[in-house]
Design a protein around this nucleic acid. Structure first.
Lengths: 156, 156
DNA sequence: CTATATAGTTAACCAGGTTGTCTATCGTGT
DNA sequence: ACACGATAGACAACCTGGTTAACTATATAG
């Protein structure tokens, strides 16, 4: 079914590879006390980072409009993963920072990601996996986040 | 930026690999007279296949609800990529079939996919690429389409 | 001190999905 | 022969992650 078109298998499998990892991550994350974290939130929180950002900057980093970034921030705030405060040096700005809970979800994600990668390494062999990662780095843009990463998802 | 979490690079690169291929495909497809084909339509048309289907069956193949499949069919019909006709043997059913234009877009997609794969093979080496494809097959579900493929996209 | 640029909010919209409900038709069991 | 359950499709209301456009408030450069 997927082999009707020879060249089609590659992108399909790349997507499925992404999907199985992200799915397993979020299943485990749900088990560890973060049932409401959706894949997008993870990308956004990672882009917000330890030092915080503003809505405009987050939009730029994720490659979406400031309005879309604003909506995401609002959702994350409602769920308790980030908090906003006015910037004293520029009262137009609102600095978005990760809360304890936000940092916890990122930390747990990191551990789970490493476990999943380890499982791939056990199945494929560390050298084969490293080769795959290297080849993917070769074929994909250098600065991942700048290249309109998650903005692409919904618009598919 | 993407290397904050070690295990995160793998899924991110897998997604970006998928993305660059699908993006280039659709750019080229647009140049070849199909500017309105979105990635989802390609998946749907491939699932419809040469013999045609019904909305319910298409939904099952793509892993989405029959209503979602119906909406996609409506869009494809409006764009002239499929046509619907009542099934004479079961008047509840409406058979969805690819039009000439629909078949043309799939044929062109196939050629472009093969070109893109060839480019990867030239850069990485045929054996490295084959190894990647094999490893991805190992780590992803066998029946790609049945595993709720594109339904996942929008919901991310 | 005015003009322009920037940060954030709000509103209206789109695409692709969901669930629930409804009608029409098919097919089976008594 | 027919009533009843299963199936196909259509419709409505809603969700999420996006978009543009228009607005207010603040900062900054000339």
């Amino acid at each position: 079914m997927s082999s009707d078109i020879p060249g089609f298998e590659l992108p399909l499998r790349l997507f499925l590879g992404f999907r199985v990892i992200i799915d397993e991550l979020h299943e485990e994350l749900a088990r560890q006390g973060h049932p409401h974290v959706r894949p997008m939130y993870g990308f956004a929180m990672q882009a917000i980072g330890a030092h915080g950002t503003t809505a405009v900057d987050l939009g730029r980093r994720l490659g979406v409009s400031k309005q879309a970034a604003g909506k995401t921030i609002e959702t994350l705030e409602r769920l308790g993963y980030v908090e906003r405060a006015r910037d004293p040096h520029d009262t137009r700005k609102k600095i978005v920072r990760l809360t304890e809970r936000g940092i916890d979800s990122l930390t747990r994600s990191a551990h789970i990601f490493e476990d999943l990668r380890a499982r791939w390494a056990r199945t494929l062999g560390e050298d084969r996996l490293r080769a795959m990662e290297e080849d993917l780095r070769t074929m994909t843009p250098t600065d991942a986040f700048r290249l309109d990463m998650p903005g692409w998802f919904g618009g598919l």
